[in-house]
Design a protein around this nucleic acid. Sequence first.
DNA 1: AATGAATGAGACTTCATTCAT
DNA 2: TATGAATGAAGTCTCATTCAT
Lengths: 194, 194, 194, 194
Amino acid sequence: MSEVQGDKHKAILDAAFALFGSQGFYDTKISDIADLAGIAKGTVYLYFKSKEKLFSAVSERDFNDFLSRLNTGLEHSESLKEQLQFIAKHHLEYYYERKDHTKLFFMAPNNDPELMGLMKEFLRSYMDAVYQVLDKAGVPEPMLHAKAYIGMLDQLKMDILFDRSITGEDLNKNILFVSRLFMYGCPIQDEPAS
Amino acid sequence: MSEVQGDKHKAILDAAFALFGSQGFYDTKISDIADLAGIAKGTVYLYFKSKEKLFSAVSERDFNDFLSRLNTGLEHSESLKEQLQFIAKHHLEYYYERKDHTKLFFMAPNNDPELMGLMKEFLRSYMDAVYQVLDKAGVPEPMLHAKAYIGMLDQLKMDILFDRSITGEDLNKNILFVSRLFMYGCPIQDEPAS
Amino acid sequence: MSEVQGDKHKAILDAAFALFGSQGFYDTKISDIADLAGIAKGTVYLYFKSKEKLFSAVSERDFNDFLSRLNTGLEHSESLKEQLQFIAKHHLEYYYERKDHTKLFFMAPNNDPELMGLMKEFLRSYMDAVYQVLDKAGVPEPMLHAKAYIGMLDQLKMDILFDRSITGEDLNKNILFVSRLFMYGCPIQDEPAS
Amino acid sequence: MSEVQGDKHKAILDAAFALFGSQGFYDTKISDIADLAGIAKGTVYLYFKSKEKLFSAVSERDFNDFLSRLNTGLEHSESLKEQLQFIAKHHLEYYYERKDHTKLFFMAPNNDPELMGLMKEFLRSYMDAVYQVLDKAGVPEPMLHAKAYIGMLDQLKMDILFDRSITGEDLNKNILFVSRLFMYGCPIQDEPAS
DNA sequence: AATGAATGAGACTTCATTCAT
DNA sequence: TATGAATGAAGTCTCATTCAT
């Protein structure tokens, strides 16, 4: 029975992920989700109390996926450079996988406190994981550095989400780029004599 | 007449900026904006064709403000370091000024192509300004570097918007921090002997 | 303009009175009322904040009609007997006029505090009017007597509402009956010797 | 088995009486009743075909209780006065016992023909019992008199149901009051000389 | 007999937008 | 140009009832 319930629970989450991701929260109707999941409208409400809660559940599952893959990967990296590269690879690949679900990140319900809390907590956890890496490596001001690194990655993700021509090649290049920039700063080739 | 129109036009934009910024697009009613602007609901439609267009106009005015202040400031900076610091200062102070209008950035209309285009164009212009600075200074891959720098700043702005305890002091510290990180990379205090 | 508003206001009240009265609160849809009033659904909400408030407004208008006709009639009656007869006549005729609107009294919204308050206040006013009559005539315990008299009338109204064969003749007979019973008690024709 | 069935049947009726009485028909969910009865939702439908039928069954049990107590009491009363007093005592005490179940009388399902029939039949039976008393005592127009007497009682019950300050004392006073009023009419203390 | 997961109909209300004045 | 009364589309959620187990 728990298996059956699990099935339906997962079917709803999957359908909601697909539709919220491609059409956005406001343009997805509960009945669409039910149809795609192959169940009745009312059944959705047996598993999720409201449309907002369903969106939150979709997000939470995705956040947890992100974080567990991140932590697993970090455990298998050793040097600071390796870890920074893994963080970049993970961040960019995660959004690359979701390039057809952009609305999940940009068309979420507007005033849902629970989702807000969830996002804050997610960001905090992510930040903390990077913080641990930097702190262990002896980087001063590890929190500020963590934010800066994540910020770079989050900006580069935009092209991945919205520029359909980005390839796996570009990803690899960007991974090397940000980790190098973060560690050594930007190189200046021919600075004009002042 | 154009003056009168200008007055009302501006009054509507100001009212919309205040309400969209503090309550978000979806929780602001056209009638609220009309009330705050001291005019009738129907009059709003003489100046703006739709609620979305009004939001776009509010955003556009703000974008232009951002860009013109940026360009003016850059003209008065000389060295790369000075320019990077100005970019950071400008970015962070801009959001500091708007810390009570956060909904403008996080609760925009969800599916408006015009606004999307406007935001893309704004980002492109912003990016281009930074690109010019880096290119002139001889930085290789200036576009990637521009994105990375803006990304860092955009991450640091989050605390400014959501952490009510951030002060002007913190701003200055962050300005120095990002420009230094960008130019020289992160310092590692006690790197294990390799 | 106030006339136009009055027109629509009244049109809605009239349509609601007709439909609530014949089909009951729960079986009447706002859209039915709008259709009958010849306006759009949304317009109903410009005049009445909710379906419950509309029902309350219909009731209130009817209550006020009842009370004003009662008071006017009482002013034109002199002796106690005349006044009691007028109260009976007024009560029974009022329901006789509304024999096709029974649902107004038996299928009201179930949990609306405003309506409850309105009904209490109406009953209080009615009771008070009868109280004044009895008190002035020197009847002891005027409040209890008022309640008893109204109770008799309210029981007799049931036949009027639900027995389609009741005629105007019956009404007159009942009016004489209750006023006489109230004043002199029931006659006992042949009491068995105990 | 019939005992087991009887147990559950009664458990459901008791739970329904409690919840319908305190919250009303529309605000009581079948699942609430099942929970209170300690059984599963579906089981309710093995004993009662619908929510309306369950309400009807609750009412019918209560009606029968009312009528059997009434008839038993009347058999033990002799004179007309005694019988009238017993009717009043029984009516008022019945509602006094149910002062925490007022919703049973004022928030019944709105459009259920079966319940309507049940109520009509109940009222008819009640009326008939009073009719018999009056007829045997030689009161003319016994049906009208029966209705009037019940009407008085039914009005006085309102205070019992809604005025939390009514005491057992008040009950006794009212019993004497109505029986006296019915038999002798209202006394007028200072009638103007005719 | 007992369960409880699944069903799906049904209607209120909001608010951006229009248009007659 | 300005008004604001009128419009009407659109979608969430509840809960009585069913039926496979």
